[in-house]
Computed example of a mutant assay.
Amino acid sequence: MFSLGSGSICDVCLDRFDENLKAPCSISCGHVFCADCLHHITRQTCPLCRISFDPRSIVKLHLDFPSNPPAESEADSTSAEQEARSLHERIAAVANAGTTEANLRALISECKTFLSNHPRNLFQDLRVSLRMIAYLCEVKSTLRSQNQTVDSYREQLEGSRTEYEELQRRLSEVDGARKEAVSARKKAEVEKRDVQSHAVQRELELTQKVSEMQNKYIDLLD
């Protein structure tokens, strides 16, 4: 049977898994969230990888939960307070100065690991800050993906515009050639009519001359 750590949490609400409302459930992409978050999700896509999933394919995981978690000593509590303060200061530094997405995800992972080992009612400020930077990280990741898609569409648009301009150029050449062909055909028809008219005229002249010669020949015989 799959064994769960003593403080494993849902990546959406950051609450610990339990056997009831917060029972861990796996979706088709393999990520695990609590049943409550999956029940209230508005879009049927994974909150982490954005892959679509069918609600009917959700699998509730049956896990072994530790029955008696060890009590936290005063020294451990002080150390935890210091670590929480350090994490909170690092989150504030990110908000003020910014950081790379890789560093931000590493910080989110550290915060989740730290909070998973403490009860839900502790370090509420850190939990809220973690939700905020986790959300901003996902927004940034989504924005980067959308920008890549926009850049891809822009490249396709430029390629289509180039193809369109080339097509327009070829159409212009074809149209020019068609007009030249029409002009040449009309010119040929005019020349043909001129030749035919000249041939008819020449034939009439020859016929007239033949007729005149015949008349002269008849006169000579007489």
Rank of each mutant, 00 (worst) to 15 (best):
E203L: 11
I218A: 13
Q148G: 04
F17L: 01
H62A: 09
R154P: 05
Q168W: 13
V12A: 15
H31R: 07
I218L: 15
I58Q: 05
L107E: 02
L206I: 07
A134R: 04
D11Q: 10
L206G: 02
C46A: 10
L143G: 02
A181D: 09
R178T: 11
I51E: 03
I27Q: 05
D151V: 02
T149Q: 12
S57V: 13
K112I: 14
R144D: 07
F33D: 11
Q201Y: 02
K22M: 06
S116W: 03
Q124I: 13
P47E: 01
D125M: 12
E110L: 13
E191K: 00
T149H: 12
R85H: 14
L157N: 13
A80R: 10
R169E: 10
C29D: 07
L220T: 01
K216G: 01
K22L: 06
S6A: 15
P55R: 14
Q82W: 06
R131I: 09
T100F: 09
F114E: 02
H118E: 06
H40F: 14
M1A: 15
L122D: 08
L4Q: 10
Q44M: 04
E173V: 00
Q196Y: 05
R193Q: 08
R161P: 01
T113K: 15
H198M: 14
E158W: 06
L206Y: 02
K60V: 10
D194F: 05
E180H: 04
Y217S: 06
L167S: 08
E212V: 05
R185F: 01
E165D: 13
E19G: 13
E19D: 14
L204W: 11
A106D: 08
E83T: 14
E180G: 10
K192H: 03
T142M: 09
C29Y: 08
I41G: 11
K187P: 00
A93S: 13
L14S: 11
C49K: 04
C37A: 06
V59D: 05
E173H: 01
S141L: 02
H40P: 14
D194V: 12
C34A: 06
E89S: 14
R50P: 00
S6Q: 12
Q196E: 06
L4P: 02
E212T: 07
K186P: 00
C10S: 12
L61P: 02
T100V: 07
I133M: 02
Y153S: 03
V174Y: 08
F2K: 15
R16W: 02
E189Y: 00
E155F: 07
A93N: 14
D54Y: 08
P24F: 00
L14M: 06
N121L: 11
K187V: 01
Q44R: 11
V94P: 06
R169V: 05
H88Y: 07
R193I: 02
Q124C: 04
I58T: 08
T45D: 13
L171E: 04
R202N: 07
P119F: 10
N96L: 03
H40M: 15
V128A: 11
T113W: 10
A184G: 01
V174S: 10
D36W: 01
H118V: 09
A184D: 01
E74C: 12
R154I: 02
C25D: 05
P119H: 03
Q156T: 08
